[in-house]
Design a protein around this nucleic acid. Structure first.
Ligand code: NAD
Ligand code: NAD
Lengths: 217, 217
DNA sequence: AATTAAATGTGAAATGGTTAACAAACTATT
DNA sequence: AATAGTTTGTTAACCATTTCACATTTAATT
């Protein structure tokens, strides 16, 4: 009996990329098989959690043996659809947008930034690491067919205006660095990367820990 | 009876910055009081969750009235210690490091990047938006006293070597953009910002949703 | 082929987090 | 001062996730 037909927990979904990265690394190293406790050492997730997560995707392992690395690579590669390139648009070519374009997820050949847009005339017309920057006003015409994913690196205030334009152009997945919650269609999936909040909550935790240590002394 | 003496849940800690941002915004708008259901509209967190979260920090509100915005601002400002500036070091002045320096958490005057380090001689000696870039090898001498926070924007491979240097120099809180888990002291708090994983899991979710929609049709 | 050793996959329990619902507490009004 | 109306803070139920612990399955060995 397997768990593979059940809904995949959100927490598990967020770990799929970590698993894939570790499996890829093992494959590059020529490792043929791996046990859940070895994977646990690599990615710092308890082995029971790993086995439970894997079980959602079928019976990938063998008792008394472990997991075949190539089998895992195939399974997780399929989950992430790494065989078919995902073409991505960047909106906002400021410091962050530019950094993303230059890096272009180099480690992941399936993730490819193919185009960028900005409202600043000084940025429009440039080509950054081979990625053309077009005027945001021309997005509908310039967005290549098949691009359903966008990364927004625009100021918070601009975000609300950008989202509907993206949606009308066929974008359904958006990652944004502006933290203000934005209205979107129910069919659009948005992920917020809130660097300031991450830092602030990290600092809260660190100070709290320090206070604990001080008390013990 | 209040919940304020109990341990604060991790999930609540991660929301503190969101609360603070919303409260600040209300204060700028001259709003004097706010109810939990209004806050809920602003930050898209259920009002019951907001009240539960707030209760960890004392009885901040009044029944039949709501919360005084200035009282909330004081309480959450104290939690985040916004009165005392946190001085931050950046390690790695590539695309991402540079973008962080130029932005410098402008919206949050208490978060201040004061210094940067890199191993690339071409970068050392520069000043970016007033922030000096020093040689990483001189970190111990150049890190100003009182800097306990660092943001690492170096390649994954370099990360493991950087952490102990930071720890020896007195850094206890680290935010890093390289996703490989790194060995650190038990007194060091690390937060990983894994942009590739975020994008990959976002895409997984979006594709899954699309498949669902397709089935319903 | 039989036996031993090992590691998976998963019930079941524990932990962590969210939310409905409401008594109690407070404001506003008369 | 009494009453009506409002909203908090919290209880209790719920849901999600993690983790323990082990029956089961498979590999390896004799
Ligand atoms: N860089 C950081 O350290 C940092 C930290 C926290 C949050 N953020 C957030 O990340 C986002 C981007 O940061 P950044 O440093 O790259 O900002 P930036 O100001 O350098 O760049 C923003 C770019 O967006 C462009 N833009 C503005 N409106 C636009 C529109 N409607 N359509 C298309 N392009 C538009 C601007 O012309 C500019 O090039 C911002 O929302 C910022 O708040 C950045
Ligand atoms: N930019 C992106 O889109 C993106 C996406 C995902 C992950 N990341 C990660 O973020 C990190 C930074 O990204 P980036 O685009 O700025 O990279 P980058 O290559 O542009 O910059 C890295 C910088 O770190 C410096 N460096 C290397 N070793 C160092 C050391 N030991 N001490 C100090 N400095 C050192 C380099 O000289 C360089 O200036 C990387 O780990 C990258 O994997 C970036």
């Amino acid at each position: 009996m397997s768990e593979q037909n059940r809904r995949i927990p959100r927490a598990t979904i967020r770990r799929i990329p970590l698993y894939y990265r570790a499996i890829e690394q093992l494959q590059r190293q020529g490792v043929q098989r791996v046990r859940s406790d070895r994977l646990s050492e690599i990615i710092h997730i308890p082995s029971a959690t790993i086995r439970r997560d894997f079980s959602h995707f079928g019976e990938l392992g063998k008792s008394g043996y472990g997991y075949s690395v190539s089998r895992l690579a195939a399974a997780f590669g399929a989950l992430l659809e790494v065989e078919s390139a995902e073409h991505i648009a960047i909106i906002g070519v400021g410091g962050l947008g530019r950094a993303l374009i230059v890096n272009n997820f180099r480690r992941n050949p399936d993730l490819t930034i193919v185009v960028a847009f900005d409202i600043d005339p000084a940025k429009v017309g440039q080509s950054i690491a081979g990625v053309p920057v077009y005027a945001f006003t021309e997005l509908a015409q310039r967005l290549p067919p098949g691009v359903h994913t966008a990364i927004m690196a625009v100021p918070s205030a601009a975000q609300a205006a950008v989202v509907p334009v993206l949606e009308n152009a066929g974008v359904t997945a958006i990652m944004t660095f502006a933290p203000l919650p934005v209205q979107c269609r129910p069919t659009t999936t948005i992920r917020y990367i809130d660097l300031t909040s991450e830092l602030q909550s990290l600092l809260f935790t660190a100070r709290q820990r320090e206070a604990q240590v001080a008390k013990v002394d």
